[in-house]
Nucleic acid binder design. Structure first.
Lengths: 149, 149
DNA sequence: TAATATTGTTAGACATTTCTAATTCAGGGC
DNA sequence: GCCCTGAATTAGAAATGTCTAACAATATTA
């Protein structure tokens, strides 16, 4: 079994982390609801995550993340944050959409692109355009308004 | 059979289009080389693309795109171009890397994000920062140099 | 043309991901 | 303690996507 996670398993792992914070114990049904799939699919995913040592899983019991599971999540959630920040605060997309889109993209963007994207967001936030009044973000907002279809 | 393409089939279709321009006829072996997979995987993909009506396929003969195939490609290659442009000319990443990354991302980014990204790249290209000398691109380049690790 | 080399396909395997349907388990009520 | 209900799992199917190895078709070339 390879160590690398598929997009699907990454999503399950993240959702486990979310629900753990939200509810404490994480049950199969909650995961199925949140992921929009059947419970049997969840069981299958849990078994595969368990084989990879990312969750503590025993049949018929709530699951928890292992240390390794938490580490895997950490990288993902950092990626998610950077992408969401870019979509919402640079591209000026609505926050709910940005979050959903980040959920997809965090599994596709390479580390290299992510890190550069972070640099760019940081840059945009500090850059004021030297004319004091309007930073790039404001000018882009105006640009969007001027170019509405 | 669903009409929607998977990432994998999208990649095969694009590669067929590329090779068609490059070589005229598209053979299984060329596809396998370009995709970095075995010929039998190509055959399997070709059969599925054929069922979806995207390519003209007959065993042991070179393949060509159908009208539907061309249409599918059009959307994808536009997406690819926008993403590559962003990576290379806004994030200032190397062009070969940008192309590879765009190949992955064109299958993940939503239409909405792509269109907004295009607006943003257009904006960056016109925005000169109002101080005549340095546009955003130049300032970001400088920012990157100042913040090297 | 006949032998050979290349190219392409099939068959069969395996992993992933999902579903439905059947079964098993755990906790609460009696 | 026994039964029932709901939660969870298994079994079995299907689609995708890939591989290896065996086989078939085509091309080359002697």
């Amino acid at each position: 079994m390879s160590r690398k996670l598929t997009m699907s398993l990454e999503s399950y792992l993240e959702t486990i982390a979310e629900l753990q914070i939200k509810f404490g114990a994480v049950r199969t049904s909650d995961l199925a609801d949140e992921m929009g799939c059947k419970k049997s699919s969840v069981t299958s995913a849990l078994q595969r995550l368990s084989e990879k040592g990312l969750i503590n899983y025993q049949a018929y019991r709530p699951v928890t993340l292992t240390i390794e599971g938490h580490q895997a999540i950490e990288r993902l959630s950092r990626f998610h944050g950077i992408i969401e920040d870019f979509l919402e605060n640079v591209l000026d997309l609505p926050s709910d959409f940005s979050c959903e889109e980040a959920c997809r993209l965090e599994h596709s963007l390479s580390k290299r692109t992510i890190e550069r994207l972070k640099m760019f967001v940081d840059f945009i936030k500090t850059d004021t355009g030297k004319n004091k009044t309007a930073g790039i973000k404001n000018r882009f907002s105006k640009f969007l308004q001027d170019n509405e279809d």
